[in-house]
Write a protein that binds this DNA or RNA. Structure first.
Length: 112
DNA sequence: ATTCTGACGTGGG
DNA sequence: CCCCACGCCAGAA
């Protein structure tokens, strides 16, 4: 099976599943890791479509500033924030505290 | 085939 | 720091 046979969304999900509990990454970082550095918006869209699926930690993907820009796609008011806080991440004003420390860069962590 | 749409990122002011 | 305009491109309609 060629890697190119796998949809962009599927690749995004594979990376998202690897984000450790209590860590976060960004849409752009995932896009860059997939060799499509200008497709950050697609990563967001993929996350939007991941709600039906299971085991996709979409709450661990935020924007490059550490803002919970996708919070409105989790149904209730602060579901995304609650999920993050349940993993030990502090969120103030929709922003992840100590973002640099919590940041998980697939490019560095996964290498390939 | 063609058009539209963003859970984004960047650069400039 | 904030705000805005623009480029981006896979997938849906």
């Amino acid at each position: 099976m060629h890697n190119s046979d796998i949809s962009f969304f599927a690749k995004v999900y594979e990376v998202a599943k690897l984000i450790p509990r209590g860590r976060v990454t960004s849409y752009g970082a995932i896009a860059e890791y997939l060799g499509s550095g200008r497709s950050a918006r697609m990563v967001g869209w993929a996350m939007n479509a991941s709600h039906n699926l299971k085991d996709i930690p979409a709450h661990r993907v935020v924007n490059r500033k550490g803002l919970l820009t996708g919070k409105h796609h989790f149904g209730g008011e602060n579901i995304m924030q609650q999920l993050l806080e349940s993993e030990g991440i502090i969120v103030v004003d929709n922003r992840i505290q100590d973002f640099e420390k919590k940041f998980w860069d697939p490019m560095k962590e996964l290498k390939y």
